[in-house]
């Protein structure tokens, strides 16, 4: 398995415990939602073959204007947003989200998060976060997550 070409794009350094405080905001990340992201997220990444995520005719018949992001992709985008920020010494220990406005092609998904709690427990250092991904038509999802690393 050769992944040398990926290495420049991977993140090897991690967020330092002393460099984070409650109330810190993560850098905003914007991602364009297009049909490719919807279809590849559902079919390639998550093996979710439910047709409203890859077949516009089926989505329209179900009352939607277009195909829309599946929840596995939304969850994956949010999880990776957080772990791309904190780096590989941290583990995502929980993530919870509620879907609001569906994400359709042509929208921009703008994700933000805030550290709500910084604490130690059972030999681990933990951060609780709240996150939100906004579309032009309102929030696509809102949720909470916890990351941890050995103390």
């Amino acid at each position: 398995m050769t992944t040398d070409w990926m290495k420049p794009h991977l993140k090897y350094d991690s967020l330092d415990w002393d460099d984070v405080s409650e109330g810190d905001e993560l850098p905003m990340v914007a991602r364009v939602v297009d049909t490719s992201l919807v279809v590849l997220g559902a079919v390639a990444a998550s093996r979710d073959f439910y047709p409203v995520h890859h077949d516009r005719d089926v989505a329209v018949a179900a009352g939607a204007p277009d195909v829309f992001l599946n929840i596995l992709t939304t969850n994956g985008l949010m999880a990776s947003y957080i772990t791309n920020w904190c780096g590989p010494d941290w583990d995502l220990s929980s993530i919870s989200l509620r879907l609001l406005v569906p994400a359709f092609p042509g929208q921009k998904l703008t994700t933000t998060a805030t550290v709500t709690r910084r604490y130690e427990q059972d030999g681990h250092r933990l951060l609780d976060l709240v996150f939100c991904a906004e579309t032009d038509f309102g929030p696509h999802c809102k949720g909470t997550a916890t990351i941890k690393r050995a103390a």
Partner: peptide, 26 residues
């Protein structure tokens, strides 16, 4: 299957994509 996921999510964690790093990691 991991790579299909990583490519779409643009996940930068070497634990999923760099066998050398992952092998010496926790």
């Amino acid at each position: 299957m991991i790579r299909h996921w990583v490519e779409i999510m643009e996940d930068r964690n070497p634990a999923y994509s760099d066998p050398e790093w992952a092998g010496t990691s926790r």
